[in-house]
Design a protein around this nucleic acid. Structure first.
Length: 126
DNA sequence: CCTGTGACACGTC
DNA sequence: AGACGTGCCACAG
């Protein structure tokens, strides 16, 4: 029901579950939704997202490399970096997020059962 | 109605 | 090791 065909709604739901101080990648979110091939569309969903005020912390969504949006973002990678930093996310000298320490486990503390295909930080261990 | 586009990811060269 | 091409699907014009 809720999710029916709204891929966006599902994406928002997952992004919304991202705990503060952690970041998730488009691919991870897509995978959590169950559509790893739609990783591309996840970003598009964020573009259509109501914004952080709407409950969708798009700033917590970053690239798999840990880099932020090139500038297409809600206010620029600079703003995103600032928001993430305010959340407690650590950044590297390259301006990338420290996926090594801030990679979301895909498991929400508010949720008991981990979503299907949850990703672990080990997956980011490149 | 059809074409083009788009905040990516993965496989292969 | 990096660079290129492909796949995916929904929304806009």
């Amino acid at each position: 029901m809720e999710s029916n065909g709204d891929f966006f709604t599902r994406a928002f739901d997952v992004v919304r579950r991202i705990p503060g101080g952690k970041v998730a990648t488009y691919g991870q979110i897509a995978r959590l939704i169950g559509e790893p091939k739609k990783a591309r569309y996840v970003g598009f969903a964020m573009h259509s997202s109501p914004g952080v005020a709407g409950g969708v912390p798009c700033h917590r969504v970053v690239f798999k490399d840990g880099s932020l949006a090139p500038g297409f973002a809600f206010g620029g990678a600079d703003a995103q970096c600032k928001l993430l930093e305010a959340e407690g996310v650590t950044f590297l000298s390259d301006g990338r997020v420290d996926m090594n320490a801030c990679a979301w486990d895909g498991r929400d503390p508010n949720r008991m059962g981990p979503p299907p295909g949850f990703l672990t930080a080990a997956e980011f261990g490149d």
